[in-house]
């Protein structure tokens, strides 16, 4: 149902991605929206904590910590250096 390149924020490999979809109810969308996470935003993964710990991303110059459950519901398109240059 989703594009092949779409992965959840949790499984983002290259570190950089663009938010394409948030697969959750309006409540989750509002919640994420409050810290600026919404469709179209560019995110950079900074850290992923072991033992089911949170992930840390950079978005608009701020760092945000997100629990894994939530991160799993944020679908992003992986960005490689090439795809960024062509945009």
């Amino acid at each position: 149902m989703f594009d092949k390149e779409l992965v959840s924020l949790l499984h983002l490999r290259s570190g950089r991605g663009q938010v394409v979809e948030i697969t959750g109810g309006i409540g989750l969308q509002n919640h994420l929206d409050s810290l600026g996470i919404r469709k179209g935003k560019l995110v950079q993964k900074i850290a992923i904590h072991p033992l089911r710990g949170p992930i840390v991303i950079e978005l608009d110059g701020t760092r945000i910590a997100i629990g894994r459950g939530m991160a799993n519901k944020i679908l992003v398109k992986e960005l490689t250096p090439d795809s960024e240059n062509s945009e």
Binding site: H31, L32, P54, T62, I64, A65, G67, R68, M70
Partner: peptide, 10 residues
């Protein structure tokens, strides 16, 4: 209990 979701202040 909910997960963490927070801005990390610079």
């Amino acid at each position: 209990s909910p997960e963490i979701f927070v801005e990390i202040s610079p």
